[in-house]
């Protein structure tokens, strides 16, 4: 089984995993980083979203062998103390219901704001459209992104 040296949340981590192992399971099973969630496994719901060099990717279908030298950021590494503007805005708007999808929502929102500091309503909806929430917290998510954009 090949060994991969991954840069995750600013740390080098070594894992032994078959090359087709999705990054999601490397994070969860090999590295005990449990903040990134499984919900569909086929890149349809976005609960597993992490950053690859700052871009939002679906870790459930992203093979570990494709990471190479890229920097991975997970929800655990988004900020030191939960003080990323997106996390703070999420708290301010009390977004979560069950909370299971919110790591994926937050990571997608943070990547959006990296690329577009002041997104329009439509740009927010289009960026967030891939992240499902069965509890139906979309309106709060969108408001929180507006707040985060203002406070970034």
């Amino acid at each position: 089984m090949p060994t991969y040296t991954l840069n995750i949340n600013g740390e080098e981590r070594e894992v032994d995993a078959s090359q087709d192992t999705p990054l999601l399971w490397v994070l969860r099973d090999h590295l005990n980083l449990l903040g990134t969630k499984y919900a569909c496994g086929i890149a349809q719901c976005g609960s597993c979203t992490v950053h690859l060099d700052g871009n939002a990717i679906r870790s459930c279908t992203f093979p570990v062998s494709a990471v190479r030298d890229a920097e991975i950021t997970t929800i655990e590494g988004l900020s030191e103390n939960g003080d990323h503007p997106v996390q703070q805005a999420w708290l301010q708007h009390d977004v979560s219901q069950c909370g299971y999808c919110q790591a994926g929502q937050i990571m997608t929102a943070a990547a959006l704001l990296n690329q577009n500091a002041d997104p329009s309503d439509q740009e927010i909806q289009s960026a967030m459209n891939g992240i499902l929430c069965r509890c139906g917290t979309y309106l709060r998510i969108n408001k929180a992104i507006k707040t985060a954009a203002k406070n970034s």
Binding site: I75, W90, D94, G99, Q102, A103
Partner: peptide, 14 residues
């Protein structure tokens, strides 16, 4: 939500 902070920081609650 009393678990709000744990949720947004990805704590293993589930």
């Amino acid at each position: 939500n009393v678990d709000g902070f744990e949720i947004v920081t990805g704590k293993p609650l589930f």
